[in-house]
């Protein structure tokens, strides 16, 4: 093989390396790109407002509307009502919550048999928690059993719930998690989501999704380039590629 040939081979190899290796973007170049992004203040305000509204911080949303001139995407009054429902479930006042939901929009429970069942189930749980065995049994037979007949999954859940009554000390019961406060929170967030959906609003704020998208976008770009990352979402600190 001639020297020239070796040289050419070498060049070809280098070319191949170039094709497979990642593009390296220095911090300086990257910061230039970051600063060139055209980001609108209104969009960031919208994002923050969406967070306040979806999470139900009505006072903060009101103030924010005044301070930043950002219009909330839904009537702030409906947040107050929604939060009242959520709070009622969180405090164990399920009957009250059902009434409030129906005041808000009767279609929500009519069109959501599963949600309605879960609320009734939560009501049963509260009765059991309060030791009102007789009332609990009556309620289960009259209100819940007919729904169980219509739907196998409901029936199973009903049986599970009634099992709470079998144990005098619920802490021995295999389904004791139903009595956990976290179960109330679960039901509360289910109602919350249903109300938001009925108001043609998304049930989750957009901010956490965008943060996940940032991680995802960095992962995707990692396959093709080396560049400064943001690893700490809480500070947005840019880290050098080598770190």
């Amino acid at each position: 093989m001639s020297l020239f040939r070796i040289f050419v081979n070498q060049l070809e190899e280098d070319d191949e390396d170039m094709a497979t290796s990642k593009k390296v973007i220095t911090r300086e170049e990257w910061e230039k790109k970051l600063n060139a992004v055209k980001l609108r203040k209104e969009d960031m305000n919208t994002l923050v407002m969406n967070f306040l509204v979806t999470e139900g911080y009505v006072e903060a949303a009101e103030k924010f509307q005044r301070e930043s001139g950002t219009k909330p995407e839904i009537d702030l009054a409906t947040i107050t009502e929604r939060m009242a429902v959520k709070k009622a479930v969180q405090n164990g006042n399920v009957e009250d919550a059902i009434e409030k939901v129906n005041d808000l929009n009767p279609e929500i429970l009519d069109t959501n048999p599963e949600l309605f069942f879960h609320l009734q189930q939560q009501r049963l749980i509260e009765l059991i928690r309060q030791g009102k065995t007789e009332e609990a049994l009556e309620f289960a037979q009259e209100e819940l059993a007919p729904r169980g007949e219509e739907n196998q999954a409901f029936l199973e859940e009903l049986e599970k719930t009634v099992a709470l009554l079998v144990f005098e000390d619920a802490s021995n019961c295999p389904v004791k998690e139903l009595l956990d406060l976290s179960h109330r929170l679960k039901t509360a967030s289910e109602v919350n989501a249903a109300i938001l959906t009925s108001q043609s609003h998304e049930k989750d704020p957009k901010l956490p999704s965008l943060l996940k998208m940032l991680i995802w976008a960095q992962n995707q770009l990692d396959e093709k380039a080396v560049y400064p990352h943001i690893n700490d979402l809480s500070t947005g600190q840019l880290e050098d590629p080598s770190e």
Binding site: L211, A217, I230, S234, L238
Partner: peptide, 22 residues
């Protein structure tokens, strides 16, 4: 000039644009 939130949104935008350009 930039809040934390803005820094994150800028990073997100540049990552997406850069990947697209590649």
């Amino acid at each position: 000039l930039h809040s934390h939130l803005e820094k994150l949104l800028r990073q997100l935008t540049v990552c997406c644009l850069e990947r697209r350009s590649l």
